[in-house]
Simulated assay, not measured.
Amino acid sequence: MQKTMDAPFDEAVIREYLADNPDFFERYPELLLTLAMPHGERGTVSLVEKRQELLRHRVHQLEEEITSLMSMASRNEQIYRFNTQLCRKLLDCEDIGELRQVLTSELKQAFQFSHVRLITVHDIDSELSAIWHKRLKQGYYFGRLTHQESHRLFGADVGSVSLARLSEDNGQVIFAMASEDVTHFHPEMDSMLLEQVRQLLDHLLPKL
């Protein structure tokens, strides 16, 4: 290991010694007050102050992580409860028209989506076929659409969308949801809600 130019000792050896002897500063507490390090805003600070600053920063990070986990758990519970209720209502539907109506009203009411559609793709419809084969190559799509795509799927400009291909056992069907918020649906978002509803539709549509 290369030594620093002005250091009489190998810094790596000192680092390893301190790591192996965490009680060193307990045996020599006066060093904590005499040793100092530069601080961008406060000049120099003691090791005790630096340690307190690092601990406060770590506590803040942990609080943010806990808040994020609690928010995620609450969101997942909301989705679970919604899907349970939606499943019961869709199972009571007697035809495809009633299913479309229930699906649309429930999703709009629960999540304030602007549009909810089940769209059958016909081979002669080149615009829908392009969306099916390009946008939904991976099975899902989250994000923005072109003006032309928005109008073909929803009949209007929308902010952001969530698209899914249903099983080809049902033909070529797109399950589409749209939000007026351009940031609501994005490529990094979780697909739990969409996947659970998609599986439910794949199960119900052949029976209707």
Rank of each mutant, 00 (worst) to 15 (best):
P22V: 08
E149L: 03
T183E: 07
A7G: 05
M1K: 15
E11A: 07
T67R: 15
F24C: 11
P22T: 05
F154M: 01
V45E: 07
L18H: 02
N21I: 12
M72N: 13
R42L: 06
S68N: 06
S129R: 08
T183G: 03
L204H: 09
E63P: 01
F113N: 04
D202W: 04
R198A: 07
E53C: 02
E195K: 10
A176F: 01
F9K: 04
H203K: 14
G155E: 01
I96V: 13
L62C: 01
S46R: 03
I66V: 15
D157E: 14
I119K: 01
A36L: 05
M37R: 09
I119P: 00
S179A: 14
F185K: 00
E94L: 10
R117M: 08
S191P: 12
S167T: 14
D169H: 13
S68V: 07
N170L: 03
K50M: 13
I96L: 11
L193F: 08
H147F: 13
H39M: 05
A19S: 11
R56E: 05
V48D: 04
Q52C: 04
M1Y: 04
E64G: 05
T67Y: 11
M189I: 15
L136G: 03
H184A: 02
R152Q: 11
H39G: 09
V161P: 00
D92C: 02
R58S: 07
T84S: 07
